[in-house]
């Protein structure tokens, strides 16, 4: 199949700004699904609200475009009732970790099998460039014209501490790694988190004088390293990419199924 077989062509050209990294994530996600040979009917994409969340409208899978911060709660309901489906939950950094932070922590803690993709542009794109919990100290935003005094989360560390059993990070520059990690995250039998550093040239780029889309992607190339690289020792500000956590723990839907089976046997 070709890329166009996986999208709802009638909604193209899409609504994202020129050079928006969210489109690169869409591109890599389609190639990941294609490489898995999955049928479009086996996949449900559930998203909340944000520029990032609009991705669910562009793919020709089952899809649900829900409410801001609550995509994981809807996804949990879908997965519990139809555990055979592959559930993918793309989220913005604000969607996942500001308003949706509590859902995020507890979905990770339960280790429910689904793929959370955090499209981290370090800003609220959709509403006009307000700072998010991922903007980080000193970043500029429409609500922090003199520089942000909040410190940012480290999504990978937070996910690991909350109990996610697959945790990885990459960027929109590293497109082969991106589609490979999306595939690995989908295949993982547990709660998987993939953070993707993705450029918002319109707000984050403009407020922070980070340049246009190609320049922002150059920064991803130059300011990240593969996890475990020696370079990080010399330059601690480099951001690590790759897989941080991959472990097996009992998965939520399978555990639930066991409880039902065991107790039905008792009753008969």
């Amino acid at each position: 199949m070709s890329v166009k077989d996986y999208i709802r062509e009638r909604f193209f050209p899409h609504m994202w700004c020129p050079g928006c990294g969210h489109g690169v994530v869409l591109n890599a996600m389609i190639r990941a699904v294609e490489s898995l040979g999955m049928s479009k009917n086996e996949i449900v994409m559930v998203s909340g609200i944000g520029c990032s969340a609009r991705i669910s409208g562009y793919v020709d899978f089952h899809s649900m475009h829900t409410i801001h911060g609550r995509a994981l709660a809807f996804a949990t309901g879908i997965k519990m009732s139809r555990p055979e489906l592959n559930v993918i939950v793309p989220m913005g950094d604000g969607d996942a970790l500001a308003i949706g932070g509590n859902h995020f922590l507890h979905a990770a803690r339960r280790n429910i099998e689904m793929t959370a993709i955090v499209m981290n542009n370090r800003i609220y794109g959709m509403t006009g460039g307000q700072f998010s919990p991922l903007s980080g100290y000193a970043a500029a935003a429409s609500t922090a014209p003199y520089g942000n005094i909040d410190h940012g989360f480290d999504i990978a560390k937070l996910s690991e501490a909350a109990g996610a059993t697959f945790v990885a990070r990459t960027t929109t520059y590293h497109v082969h790694e991106l589609s490979r990690l999306i595939r690995d995250a989908i295949l993982h039998e547990g709660f998987s988190v993939l953070e993707v550093l993705t450029q918002c040239p319109t707000y984050f780029g403009r407020y922070n004088r980070a340049g246009d889309a190609p320049e922002m992607m150059e920064t991803y190339k130059n300011r990240t390293v593969a996890v475990g690289s020696e370079k990080k020792n010399q330059d601690p500000d480099l951001i690590e990419r790759g897989v941080f956590v991959k472990k097996e723990l009992p998965e939520y839907c399978r555990e639930y199924e066991k409880v039902i089976e065991k107790n039905q046997q008792k009753q008969t």
């Binding site: 489109g23 591109n27 190639r31």
Partner: peptide, 13 residues
Amino acid sequence: RMCEYRCPDLAIE
């Protein structure tokens, strides 16, 4: 094919 893979608009094949 790097142009195709990096295009955010799926505009190039």
